[in-house]
Simulated assay, not measured.
Amino acid sequence: MCGRFAITLPTDAMAQLFAARPANDLPEVPNYNVCPTNRIHVVKSDGADRQLVAMRWGFLPHWYKTPSDGPLLINARAETIAQKPAFRKACRERRCIIPVTGFYEWTKDAEGTRFPWYIQGAETLAMAGVWRRWDRGEDAVEACAIVTTGANRAMSAIHHRMPVILPADDWALWLGEAGHGAATLMKAAPDEALTFHRVDRKVNSNRASGPELIEPIEAD
């Protein structure tokens, strides 16, 4: 799964990387502790025009009467996304990319103590996502979820799930700009695509902030 991440790339650089037109209300960067329900950077496309926009991290199905009406849907499983009522239409029609610098995952010891790890690639990671516009009268929110899949061999040492990470050559296909076949992209990244290291347990708090959150520490 993916329940917390960092984004440090400046907005202008993000827009240039994805060849996307930036909106005017994007979240501030850097943010070393992006949490569920935060507004995050998302790349979407109508087939001709890519946009870098802000969305709520936490998908809102059409039957939710309020944003807190049901479970917090921050991830969508690749194996079932096409069948789940919450995600199946978005999977066909509203796929997006969620840029991150790296993401966090946790392991536990025998006493249940949670130890955070920071996972990153050589460059900005493009996570596969799905989104929809949730509208209730005057309340309208664009909300998204990160698509996850079974972990590759390297990541399985930390967690059994991982985000679907898209190489640049696959961005157009995932965004619906290059025809059909996006389902083939929902797979684990190669083992060598990611590295990870232990970080301080202060990131266990969703109020923690600052670049020290991603600094490596010696594992206990």
Rank of each mutant, 00 (worst) to 15 (best):
W134L: 00
R132D: 10
W57G: 03
H160Y: 13
F59K: 01
A157S: 15
T101K: 06
A178I: 05
I146T: 03
D69S: 07
T107D: 08
I81K: 01
Q83I: 09
D191T: 15
V53Q: 08
M127L: 15
D139A: 07
G112C: 09
S156R: 15
D109Y: 15
G176L: 09
I98K: 05
T124D: 04
R56S: 00
A193H: 11
G129M: 06
P85N: 03
P85E: 06
I97R: 12
M55N: 03
A182L: 02
V100E: 05
N152M: 10
A128G: 14
A178D: 14
E93A: 11
D169R: 15
N152G: 12
H62N: 02
P67K: 03
P163S: 09
A182T: 04
R92W: 06
I146L: 05
R114T: 01
T66E: 00
A178S: 14
W131V: 01
V53I: 15
H160V: 10
H160P: 14
I74A: 03
A82S: 13
D139S: 06
A86W: 08
R94C: 09
P190H: 15
W106L: 04
W174D: 13
A145R: 01
E138Y: 06
I146G: 04
R132A: 07
I97C: 05
